[in-house]
Design a protein around this nucleic acid. Structure first.
Length: 342
DNA sequence: TTTTCCCGCCATGCC
DNA sequence: GGCATGGCGGGAAAA
């Protein structure tokens, strides 16, 4: 289609539907997996229900019932935020218990890890802290958001923080939450506004993205924000507010202080005075992914200094399309926010 | 038609 | 080389 796309875009990917009739385009590994899965399916037909990690048949499960929010609710039923002490979580077992793929567990645990509810201990194993470290962490996030001048960035008065190279879901989750924390109480934020701050369009040392590529990048980030928002709603950090008459898109509001859902009711949660919080002093604001070099990057004092130095990109012109949309979004949200604050 | 977001391919990096 | 992790976008359900 567009032959000029290959300059900075990610390598061409092939949807399964695209490749199943053309084995030439499939990597050997993918091909092997495909064949394996077919073989396993046939095997399942013979030995049905011997599957170690059963997934519900697609036809019987409603899309809504499989949402990340509900999945996270169920995850939090297993591992409550208000539990005592720490628990070791085996990701594959948890996935099996919830009847989902392990991949979905990563979506949830990465976001929860970014909130310091869990720490990657070793392969397949996370240490679950629940909400015991959440409130101090939120305070820190707020401070970090102020340092990054996110409030100004939201209004186009300050440069955006640079995009992370790794753990982008976790960092996006943190920055998304920062937006709520740096704004006055009850500020309504929609995903368009958030993405505007969260996408780094500076493209250091690279050619500028075409409007088409910007659109795709934007859509991709919005997808991720939906995922993040759903987990945050489940945790009780934000809530969806209906009624954006112009954009017909949801807006979100911070629901803090951190709440815990407990059997259909929402209760305020005061973190227990527990020795666990002492752990924060050992490695404040720094979440490592086990031994991996990949880590959530924003919080060390050093990285912050580096971050500050890197924040030099001006607010580049976006595609007119998004500017128009964002202008309307701003007007609408300002109106709503003013109404809320009165 | 547009929005929402599940699903799973496959790149990356560690062991 | 195999495996765990996680980025990313296709595409289908829901609105």
């Amino acid at each position: 289609m567009n032959e000029n796309e290959n300059i900075v875009s990610t390598p061409k990917r092939f949807a399964l539907t695209e490749v199943t009739n053309s084995a030439n385009n499939v990597s050997p590994n993918a091909n092997l997996k495909l064949l394996t899965s077919v073989a396993l399916q046939e095997n399942d037909l013979v030995n049905h229900n011997t599957n170690q990690y059963p997934t519900p048949p697609p036809s019987t499960v409603h899309r809504k019932e499989k949402s990340l929010q509900i999945l996270c609710d169920r995850f939090l039923d297993l591992y409550p935020l208000h539990g005592n002490g720490t628990i070791e979580i085996q990701l594959d077992c948890t996935a099996a218990r919830l009847g989902v793929e392990k991949r979905r567990m990563y979506d949830i645990i990465n976001i929860l890890e970014a909130m310091q509810c869990a720490v990657h201990k070793r392969k397949n194993t996370y240490l679950w802290y629940g909400g015991s470290r959440l409130n101090p962490f939120l305070k820190m996030l707020k401070k970090e958001g102020e340092n990054l001048k996110l409030s100004d960035a939201l209004r186009g008065k300050a440069p955006k923080p640079p995009a992370p190279k790794h753990k982008t879901l976790g960092v996006m989750a943190q920055r998304f939450l920062m937006l709520f924390l740096v704004e006055p109480q009850n500020t309504l934020i929609n995903l368009e506004m958030a993405v505007r701050v969260l996408i780094d369009t500076s493209n250091n040392n690279r050619t500028a993205l075409s409007p088409d590529q910007q659109d795709r990048q934007h859509k991709s980030k919005v997808r991720r924000l939906y995922d993040i928002a759903n987990v945050f709603i489940s945790v009780g950090l934000i809530e969806k507010v209906s009624g954006n008459s112009i954009l017909k898109k949801p807006v979100f509001k911070y629901a803090g202080p951190f709440k815990v859902k407990k059997s259909n009711e929402v209760i305020l949660y005061t973190p227990p005075i527990t020795p666990l919080s002492v752990l924060d002093q050992q490695s404040p604001c720094h979440v490592f992914a086990g031994k991996s070099k990949r880590k959530l990057e924003f919080t060390t004092p050093n990285s912050y200094k580096e971050t500050k130095l890197c924040v030099n990109a001006p607010m580049e012109a976006m595609s007119h399309k998004w500017n128009d949309i964002l202008l309307v979004a701003d007007m609408e949200l300002t109106k709503m926010n003013c109404g809320k604050l009165l």
